[in-house]
Design a protein around this nucleic acid. Sequence first.
DNA 1: CTGTATATCGTACGCCGTACGGACTAAACA
DNA 2: TGTTTAGTCCGTACGGCGTACGATATACAG
Lengths: 199, 199
Amino acid sequence: MDTALRLADAEGLDAVSMRRLARELDVSPMSLYSYFEAKNDLVRAMLDVVSRGLGPADVTDGDWSEHLAEMGRRMRAAILEHPRLAQLFVTAPALGGRAMYVVEDMIGALRSKGVPGETALRAVYAVTAYAIGFVAQEVPRRDRGDTASRQEALASLPGDRFPNLVELAELAAGFASDEQFESGLTALIAGYAGGSPAQ
Amino acid sequence: MDTALRLADAEGLDAVSMRRLARELDVSPMSLYSYFEAKNDLVRAMLDVVSRGLGPADVTDGDWSEHLAEMGRRMRAAILEHPRLAQLFVTAPALGGRAMYVVEDMIGALRSKGVPGETALRAVYAVTAYAIGFVAQEVPRRDRGDTASRQEALASLPGDRFPNLVELAELAAGFASDEQFESGLTALIAGYAGGSPAQ
DNA sequence: CTGTATATCGTACGCCGTACGGACTAAACA
DNA sequence: TGTTTAGTCCGTACGGCGTACGATATACAG
């Protein structure tokens, strides 16, 4: 697993083939099948290791909105630790492994603070969706150049069809990912809490 | 493109190989390279066609929150029309093609109703992230059995470690996707609007 | 008619996942 | 002790993949 993850981080998920991984380990390709029934199993194991980075949601102070926000932040952070594996989270048949524990604990925390089960489920589900979708958009964007080049790309759109994007190019390109993430996260949770608006 | 999309819808994205697509078309594999420089181009073209399904955001009544919500719904609906291509949206280097027009128009609509540019950008970005992430979780879940079997799967978790998920299994399995999507979408937008709480 | 562009194709290379069966090793048991 | 068993490793082979390269055929411009 170490080698597989190192390989994936360094050269991308596509570089992780049974044959290539075996070569890295100075071993025959078929040997790997003693440990994984098929390549899918290997990939699932990789996802599991990464999602272990979620860690327990041990924040106990603050109200439940803060709990929930923290879960969202952890989820994003865990995925961003291995950006090249991000697509796994997004394509995965289901959140499993560590993520399951986090969801369970988060729902428990919310309920213990008086949130009804249904709302807790809905809110956790929504935050999960937001975090995954956000990172899915964030990762490729990050790979594709700095702020200046992103701004240039937006500004060079045909101005007669994209007046708003062109006008706001500088603003849009300058958004820090962290702020942008917080913005949506805060809004989403505020919506569930019926609290104050974001931004 | 028609054949490629039909093939992808019927047998999944993996079935769309240059060789297979050529066979479907009664043509040599290499012939396809007259029209697409590489397989990536073909995939991008497929994504473009699908995202054309977004259509223009032509809802002009209602306030801007309703506009924004409609964009989210359209986005989800467009992706769900070709569920087996969903991962493309999520892995894509950037929203392009039709999606770009939708974003532009949506930002324009929001601004024309008095929303500051920055908020408009942030809100549209957040809704996009939410919609993509939601569908990413929704598609595999849908493939994996009906309500009853999902409930069973949840209920059979070890009760000492997952008390909440077990207890709420019935509730969780029974959530209709549409309701769940609306729940998060409403919350998110309400957060930006500073309006009333969801659910 | 001649040249040039366009579409199609056959062949070949180096990847991939993995089915199958064999060889070696170490532990469990007689 | 010898024998069996389970686990590990491997070589070979099959069918698939993307696509570089060069040849051919067809159509159209001059």
